[in-house]
Amino acid sequence: MGKPNGLVQGTLDLFILKTVALEPRHGWAIAKRIQQISRDVLQVQQGSLYPALHPLQQKAWIRAKWAETETGRRAKFYSLTAAGRVQLENEAANWDRLSSAINLVVQTS
């Protein structure tokens, strides 16, 4: 058990970084956002998010803070750090290169 189906660990990391890049979000919001953006293509067990969050904190790419949600409950909000922003840019660029390469291969052959 554990790893979400068809999702590489790095990919999940990239999603998380991207999702919290705009504004601080809590786990539930991150999960929802990933599902929304991917238009439900990525069927992830939502709980899988949590084991992935901690390493990102330890690498100091994201930081966490307890705050109140709009419904008045306390939740842990994650936001991107400066180091995280650099990492996100690198990863995104990498991803771009990789996906366009794959596109190229798939379309031409």
Partner: peptide
């Protein structure tokens, strides 16, 4: 625990 509980409650 708190985080996960919150998530479940929202779900």
């Amino acid at each position: 625990d708190g985080e996960m509980q919150f998530h479940l409650d929202e779900l």
